[in-house]
Design a protein around this nucleic acid. Structure first.
Length: 863
RNA sequence: GGGCGUUUAGCUCAGUUGGCUAGAGCAUCUCGUUUACACCGAGGAGGUCGGGGGUUCGAAUCCCUCAACGCCCACCA
């Protein structure tokens, strides 16, 4: 059967994927060796973007490769409830439709609305994941709110509490007054802002601040202990005229003060600033609330500003102090960055609140037979190589993050998510799944999304129920994700997994970079430079998108993507397709399922391609083992396009050996399959090859084939190139059948391939014949020279010049090699092969040089 | 402020432990529809490997230094 001219991906992709699903091709097939990946769960309410696409492609390439290598392969898909993102999205929709807030409709109603929304949009992201060709086991699909995951979350939380690793405490926290929730440090985004910076006279010193509205109860001045300006004041107490009358202030010293900043003296507001809070704790100072959770000044704090918003209060305080003559000056161009909740956009107002924290420093965790702290464990498993991060430079970032890690604030004041299993009755606290009885009230807060994500590798395998999957596939083999969530997610998985299972979650971490536009800029809706993967799939096919995402990109580095790039890989898919189409047109009654291996190296050209194929098999296997996905892909690309299509197919057209042709094609389809699963599968099927390509065995490298001598075909290719450039030099049209006389010591190979050469190079080839006609001579190598026979006269002078130029070029090379070889240190230090190679090169060049000189002499004689 | 990365042809990138004449693809120019493919084929032009210094028989590759761009972390009274 002959293939159509192009691969109709719109017609076949879904059909092929459906077949894979029906035949359960994605499920593990029992084997001694296991390979498992858990998919980083996309947000349940999200739509597929290029960040997902690149991750899915890399994961799927590895999974398909390992599956074909005979591993029992499990690739688990899932979705994440993404608590804050999802809740704020649904709240937004409800508010837009009905004008109601979550407090109007209540907890139960909001949760049921969110559930509905999530169920619907989950399907979208799943369908889109399928579009990429992802070969994950949908039977194992997980959602971070699944029952067993909830059980695992509650169990882990309870155990942590019982092991004294979590605690509840009032502490300074990032509070988002808009969304009425705390936000973790990692969920902050800093927006640069230009604002007013005020200088006030505060007793004996001038203080600088951008936040006068917080300063009602500032009673402590902090200076640097070494600061000559203030040294004499340290420890002193003053009566200070301030916003609402006289207050008493004292001066303390701390070396965290930057003498260069502002005036080098500041007052502190412990309840509403991270650094002030830490200072207050350190120096045992009073911590007084100034601002309430709505972002308004507390009534009891200020008689003048109570109840005002931050903005209003700031103006008023400045006015009061100005009127009192205490405003020294104002800097209107003060630049600083304000922390914002990157999910909801609200400006963060630090607040002291009761929150649940996970203690990262307490050595209370059993691991490796020791009592260690979470920090120690997280460092240990990466330091000792149990977990390998690729690229390894991210180790530094990881270590740095851990060394600076503070206790993890676990609680969130939102409703969607895993509710904290803590119960209160008066001052009593109990941590357990179910209510301890009447009169006990459950903590209204939920857990940080990353808590359940941190349990992902083993909860997806059915934990806490003991089971076979868990035993077989945990720790997982690989975690592939974007480098931006190394701290968010990867580190937390290591933390929680080592705690709950005493195992590492994964052995290898592979971090891909961000996908950007051609200029390396982030894609964003507002810039309009975004590329929609689904649109590209529709236009160019999923295979082309996959190839364009992984070829030419390196781990950890950004991948630049643009439409021309995708189009060029679509062309490659077409090229592959057409090489198979050529085969299909020539098969006749050849049995593709019954290749005669004896026949593989029948002709010189067969040997040549078989050798190249086996070297490719060797390299591809090695490269994929090392996850050098780009290198591997581009090598296959080049083999298929150049070696196989441009040379082998063309040369073999006149001496078709279907055994070798089909053998090579089949193997290259297997090698390509992880990269372009759809087109390769369709070709496989249309050629009538038995079985499902994705379940085919990965080819085995054969050293004997790699050792074949193929110089004759290399020379033949050089000859063809020579004829082509000769023709081009004399502006002879490509299809013009010129006459070529070839003088060669390798007559046999030229004789055998005479027709092929004539066709490929567009010439009539005479082998070792003489002629009386005029001709132009070209030296291919010392064994072979070609003569282009010309009807018309040609410029002999010009020819002589060209040849002389050539000769002097060769002379230059000869001199270079001679100089090298006469350098004692080179001969002594360079590897022997290199020296030998130089010697034989020199020999060859000398021969060519002699031939060239002869040629020039002849030309001169004919003048 | 601390750390990391990048810099090779007009563009996007390869270039293994240093090894001899630095390679692809796209774009460009010339030529060509030869029945797998114009989403194609052939040929050509295009590079002082960011600058400077050093180590070496030999440097795009190793070291030092400077520069530009990008990213991450911390801080921002």
């Amino acid at each position: 059967m002959t293939l159509e001219k192009n691969f109709d991906f719109n017609k076949f992709e879904d059909q092929i994927y459906q077949r894979w699903l029906e035949n359960k091709c994605f499920n593990p097939i029992e084997s001694e060796k296991q390979y498992s990946i858990v998919m980083p769960p996309p947000n349940a309410t999200g739509i597929l973007h290029l960040g997902h696409s690149i991750g899915l492609t890399i994961q799927d390439i590895m999974v398909r490769f390992k599956r074909m290598q005979g591993h029992e392969t499990l690739y688990i898909p899932g979705t994440d409830h993404a608590a804050i993102a999802t809740q704020s999205k649904v709240e937004g929709i409800i508010f837009k439709e009905t004008g109601q807030t979550r407090h109007d409709i209540g907890r139960e109603n909001l949760l049921s609305e969110i559930d509905k929304f999530v169920k619907q949009s989950q399907e979208t992201i799943i369908k889109q994941t399928m579009k990429m060709g992802t070969s994950c086991s949908w039977d194992h699909l997980k959602f971070t709110l699944d029952e067993n995951i909830s059980d695992a979350v509650l169990e882990t939380f309870t155990n942590l509490f019982n092991d004294d690793l979590i605690y509840r405490k009032g502490r300074i926290t990032n509070w988002d007054p808009n969304m009425q929730t705390t936000v973790s440090d990692d969920e902050l985004e800093y927006l640069e802002e230009t604002t007013d910076f005020y200088y006030f006279q505060f007793g004996p010193v001038v203080i600088g601040t951008a936040r006068p509205e917080t300063k009602f109860k500032d009673e402590v001045i902090v200076v640097h202990p070494e600061d000559e300006r203030y040294k004499h004041l340290i420890g002193e107490t003053f009566e200070v005229d301030w916003i609402e009358g006289k207050i008493t202030a004292k001066v303390i010293a701390d070396d965290c003060i930057d003498m260069e900043l502002g005036t080098g003296a500041m007052t502190i507001t412990p309840a509403h600033s991270q650094i002030d809070f830490e200072l207050a704790e350190k120096h045992n100072l009073k911590i007084e609330k100034i601002i309430d959770l709505e972002g308004k000044i507390l009534e009891e704090v200020s008689t003048t500003c109570g109840g005002l918003t931050i903005k209003e209060a700031r103006k008023k305080v400045v006015k009061i102090l100005d009127e009192k003559g205490l405003l020294v000056k104002t800097d209107h161009k003060y630049k600083h960055s304000v922390p914002v909740n990157y999910r909801g956009g609200g400006i963060i107002e630090p607040q002291v609140l009761d929150q649940w924290y996970l203690d990262v420093n307490k050595p209370n965790v059993d691991f490796d037979g020791e009592k260690l702290s979470f920090k120690q464990i997280m460092l240990k498993v990466v330091e000792d190589g149990r977990i390998a991060i690729n690229p390894s430079r991210f180790n530094k970032i990881y270590f740095h993050w851990i060394n600076n890690l503070r206790d993890w604030c676990l609680s969130r004041q939102i409703w969607y998510g895993h509710r904290i299993p803590a119960w209160y009755k008066g001052d009593e606290i109990k941590v357990q799944k179910d209510s301890p009885g009447s009169g006990w009230k459950q903590d209204p807060d939920t857990l940080d999304t990353w808590f359940s994500s941190g349990l992902w590798t083993f909860t997806t395998l059915g934990y806490p129920e003991p089971n076979q999957l868990l035993e077989k596939f945990h720790p997982t083999s690989l975690l592939e994700t974007g480098h931006d969530i190394l701290p968010f997610w990867v580190a937390r998985m290591i933390l929680l997994t080592t705690y709950a299972t005493k195992q590492i979650p994964f052995k290898d971490v592979y971090l891909h970079g961000m996908v950007t536009d051609k200029k390396g800029k982030k894609m964003s809706k507002s810039k309009g430079n975004g590329i929609d993967p689904l649109e590209m799939i529709e236009k160019y096919g999923a295979d082309a998108l996959r190839l364009s995402l992984v070829i030419g990109s390196t781990a950890g580095e950004k991948t630049k993507l643009y439409e021309e790039k995708i189009a060029s890989y679509r062309n490659f898919v077409t090229k592959v397709w057409n090489s198979a189409r050529f085969a299909s047109m020539n098969l006749n009654d050849f049995d593709v399922n019954n290749i005669n291996l004896e026949n593989l190296t029948k002709n010189e050209a067969d040997k040549w391609i078989i050798k190249k194929l086996h070297k490719l098999i060797q390299n591809s296997t090695e490269n994929l083992e090392k996850m050098k996905i780009s290198d591997c892909g581009s090598q296959i690309y080049e083999f298929l396009w150049n070696d196989f299509c441009s040379w082998y197919l063309e040369i073999s057209k006149t001496n078709l050996n279907l055994d070798t042709l089909v053998y090579t094609l089949k193997n290259v389809l297997i090698l390509l399959h992880p990269y372009m699963p759809f087109a390769t599968s369709q070709i496989w099927e249309e050629l009538g090859i038995k079985g499902e390509l994705m379940l085919e065995s990965w080819p085995v490298f054969n050293q004997e084939y790699a050792d074949l001598n193929t110089e004759k075909i290399d020379d033949l290719c050089a000859t063809i190139n020579g004829i082509r450039s000769l023709k081009s030099e004399f502006s002879l049209q490509t299809n013009n059948k010129v006459e070529i006389n070839i003088n060669t010591n390798e007559a046999e190979i030229y004789d055998f391939n005479q027709k092929a050469i004539q066709k490929i190079a567009g010439c009539i080839l005479n082998i070792n014949q003489t002629t009386d006609k005029k001709f132009i001579n070209k030296v291919i190598n010392s064994q072979t020279q070609i003569n282009l026979i010309l009807d018309q006269d040609f410029d002999i002078e010009n020819e002589i010049q060209k040849s002389q130029k050539n000769a002097s070029k060769i002379e230059g090379q000869i001199k270079g090699i001679q100089a090298r070889l006469s350098n004692q240190k080179y001969v002594a230090n360079a590897p022997k092969e290199l020296v030998d190679e130089s010697k034989s090169q020199l020999e060859e060049l000398n021969k060519q040089h002699t031939i060239l000189l002869d040629k020039i002499k002849n030309l001169q004689n004919s003048l």
